[in-house]
């Protein structure tokens, strides 16, 4: 059996995809701020295209605005750092030199939410989705596995304009396969059901799938909507599903304020008011912890998802 894409770490697929894009397009640039080994681009991209690997050092603000300047000259820079430093630390730089100026800059936030694990509260960013979503011109993506990640990165390179993507770095179980194609305007219906609508994105989708499978054994069928794009947000699929089930649960690796749960509530309250239960991090900071510990503490692991769906 040859190597399958889901056997690789997510960051390895990010680097590999970026190299493939760079092989074909001389304008693709890999930018880093001293976390290139963590992002997976060093040594892979650095070795493949050393002239188009720009390390800004520990200077994220400079990195984002250098990228803005390069984009004005036709380059397509992909700027990676840990999510807190790729978003909240440089919020004004991204707002003005990328979103307001509408430059063709791609921002990659690595180790999102609880996946920052042992780095603790300083590095555990729960609000990047909310703050990036609130920015005009910005597209916000959160792929769940390597197949989707690869398609998202290709789409980002082809799309003219600012895009933010969350990248969990480690191996993730496959939700999709080689046939997957990304469409930013469509939610993916991973399971079809009639009892409850379960809405997820990014890292949490694998747990939502598990919950949905186990609920099926109990006789509860879940309409499972995975959103690789939280902005643009496919409102039609959500409204249609809510009309069918009359009950919605959201789960995300983020604060429940302003992210996926926020998008769902905004959409339904204006279009088809439906009871919604939001799972994720309440209004709290992170801490050094394991995933299971945080799932238990804040109530958004598989068992909690199942309970909320019943």
């Amino acid at each position: 059996m040859s190597e399958q894409l889901h056997d690789l770490e997510m960051r390895a697929v990010y680097a590999r995809t970026l190299i493939e894009l760079a092989n074909e397009n001389p304008n693709i640039i890999c930018m880093e701020a001293d976390l290139s080994k963590a992002s997976g681009t060093n040594p892979a991209f650095l070795t493949a295209h050393p002239d188009r690997f720009i390390n800004a050092g520990v200077a994220e603000a400079d990195m984002i605005c250098i990228a803005g300047g390069m984009a004005v000259e036709g380059k397509i820079p992909f700027c990676a750092s840990f999510t807190p430093f790729a978003t909240r630390r440089v919020y004004d730089q991204v707002t003005i030199s990328v979103a307001y100026a509408n430059t063709n800059v791609k921002i990659v936030g690595t180790a999102p939410g609880i996946t920052a694990g042992p780095n603790g509260g300083t590095h555990m960013c729960f609000q990047d989705m909310a703050i990036m979503r609130a920015m005009p011109n910005m597209i916000v993506l959160s792929p769940c596995d390597t197949y989707e990640l690869r398609e998202c990165i290709k789409w980002m390179a082809a799309h003219e304009g600012p895009v933010y993507v969350q990248l969990s770095r480690m191996k993730q179980p496959a939700v999709f396969d080689e046939s997957y194609r990304f469409n930013p305007d469509k939610a993916v219906k991973v399971r079809e059901g009639k009892d409850v609508t379960l809405v997820t994105t990014g890292y949490m989708t694998q747990f939502a799938v598990k919950a949905a499978n186990e609920l099926a054994a109990e006789g509860i069928t879940v309409d499972l909507l995975h959103y690789p794009s939280v902005k643009p947000f496919d409102t039609a699929t959500l409204i249609e599903s809510a009309k069918k089930t009359g009950k919605v649960v959201t789960v995300e690796n983020q604060s429940i304020i302003g992210g996926l749960g926020g998008a769902v509530c905004e959409t339904l309250s204006e279009n088809h008011p439906t009871p919604v239960k939001r799972l994720g991090i309440p209004d709290k900071f992170g801490e050094v912890a394991t995933e299971d510990y945080l799932f238990g503490k804040h109530g958004f692991g598989v068992e909690h998802i199942k309970k909320a769906c019943r």
Binding site: G68, G69, M70, V72
Partner: peptide, 11 residues
Amino acid sequence: QGLSGAGGMAI
């Protein structure tokens, strides 16, 4: 921000 942007143009 402008000096960083100018640096990007120069690169």
